[in-house]
């Protein structure tokens, strides 16, 4: 079972790399926010998988909960901030 969890974690990290493409090369700021949000939701699962691998789920589940909340607040704050800036089309 530990091997399955290990390979699932590696696969999740690979998916995060795919999402990172959108975060780095996304044509507008909001596209980058989508990429960051997608990475954050995968990280929540990855944290619990790491906890199962190290047999310390009771500790890692708290970290995962805090990370989910932090991700939500970060997305809210970023979207409140960037909506005031015009001219998203010109940004590359």
């Amino acid at each position: 079972m530990d091997n399955i969890f290990l390979y699932c974690s590696l696969y999740l990290a690979f998916l995060m790399l795919l999402s990172l493409y959108r975060g780095v090369f996304g044509p507008t700021v909001v596209d980058r926010m989508i990429g960051v949000n997608a990475i954050g939701s995968k990280t929540t699962v990855l944290l619990i998988l790491i906890g199962l691998l190290y047999h310390r789920v009771d500790m890692f589940v708290d970290i995962a909960l805090a990370y989910a909340m932090l991700n939500f607040v970060a997305v809210l704050a970023a979207s409140r901030y960037f909506q005031k800036r015009k001219g998203l089309h010109d940004e590359v």
Binding site: T28, S41, T44, V61, A68, F72, V75, Q83, L88
Partner: peptide, 30 residues
Amino acid sequence: LKILLIVVFVFLASPTATHAIVDAGVRAGL
């Protein structure tokens, strides 16, 4: 139960975050 609490929280937070992002896009005029 804590893991399930994360699920409940994400189900409340994810539509709100999506709405915040789409709102930012609309106001920026995309």
